[in-house]
């Protein structure tokens, strides 16, 4: 892994660099920081103004600047209360499919990538399989939507297959959740495979050969060598996949009928939140947006490095 980030600094270079920066702080450098700060402002302001707006009363929204804090008189938790009430059930539903789909697609991706990277078989045949898989990452999902609807509504009627579950008192709308898990796993395989493959390619070939000479079958090599060493990549893939699945609207829209369904995921409810005949309630929308984004924001703040690695691959 070290050669992929040739200039990741040890402590020594960081201090050296810091000293260098201070020594040579010129007008040009100062300009650089100003530009960077303005850019940072540009990225922050939409989010910041959303955050402050979510705490504003109706009058404060009109009277204060969009990015200014509400002030004591215009401050309210009311919108957050409403948003949480509206979205909490969606949150649960989202977790219900996002977590299993993330875990399964990461595991399947790891296994697939292993089979396509470590064992030796003809490169040209491997390349064909890989091309088909990688192309699968980039397919616009619109091209599969109608068949997908057909498949789940006419061919694989989970509604009936899972009737024993509904008998337990679970709403049969939750068939949509199961469909979402399977769908997200199927369409998540390509990206998970690619991410794991880039990692497995950096593994020492001699180590794998050594394990095979030691008498291990491919299955044992995976179990005992490759899987235990995949930890860092699992972090990257799980985080990336979770963000993707949590944020996806298209499949939920198509597979889970409506936002009023008991199984409606959070994105679906949020898209319609705060819209009514009287106009748009922006404070409510912002509060909802932040509440819905909490899990991915938390993931991003705690695992920023892994997230960056996931998107860059």
């Amino acid at each position: 892994m070290s050669d992929t980030k040739p200039r990741t600094d040890g402590g020594a270079t960081t201090t050296a660099r810091l000293r260098r920066t201070l020594d040579r702080m010129t007008v040009e450098d100062a300009g650089l920081y100003v530009v960077l700060l303005f850019a940072a402002l540009f990225y922050i302001v939409p989010i910041e103004s959303g955050l402050v707006t979510s705490f504003k009363t109706g009058t404060a929204i009109i009277e204060t600047a969009p990015f200014a804090p509400p002030g004591p008189s215009g401050f309210t938790f009311e919108k957050w209360q409403t948003a949480i009430d509206a979205l909490l059930r969606g949150m649960g539903n989202s977790l219900l499919y996002a977590v299993p789909a993330t875990v399964i697609s990461a595991i399947v991706g790891s296994i697939t990538a292993y089979g396509l990277t470590i064992p030796t078989w003809k490169k040209s045949y491997k390349a064909v399989v890989l091309m088909l898989i990688i192309a699968g990452i980039f397919i616009p999902y619109q091209a599969v939507l109608v068949p997908l609807t057909q498949f789940w509504s006419q061919w694989a009627q989970l509604d009936q297959v899972l009737s024993f579950v509904w008998a337990l008192g679970v709403s049969n709308d939750y068939a949509g959740i199961v469909e979402l898990v399977i769908t997200h796993v199927a369409y998540g395989i390509p990206i998970c495979t690619l991410l794991f493959r880039t990692y497995y390619k950096t593994m020492s070939e001699e180590m794998i050969e050594s394990a095979r000479l030691d008498g291990a079958t491919l299955r044992r090599v995976y179990r005992r060598i490759v899987l235990p060493l995949s930890g860092p990549m699992f972090a990257v893939v799980l985080i990336y996949q979770f963000t993707q699945i949590w944020n996806d609207l298209l499949f939920t829209l198509v597979l889970v009928s409506t936002e009023s369904s008991p199984a409606a995921p959070v994105v679906l409810i949020l898209a319609g939140l705060g819209t009514s005949l009287e106009g748009q309630d922006f404070a409510l929308r912002m509060a909802g947006a932040f509440f819905a984004a909490l899990p991915t924001l938390a993931v991003y703040i705690f695992f920023g490095e892994e997230f960056a690695e996931g998107v860059a691959a």
Binding site: P46, S49, N247, A271, Q280, A289, A292, L297, F307
Partner: peptide, 21 residues
């Protein structure tokens, strides 16, 4: 971290922000 922050958000969420902007 700041520049990449919007990338972690859902389209559904960022759409709300831009509606407001």
């Amino acid at each position: 971290t700041i520049y990449l922050l919007p990338m972690s958000l859902s389209f559904v969420v960022t759409a709300q922000f831009w509606l407001w902007i």
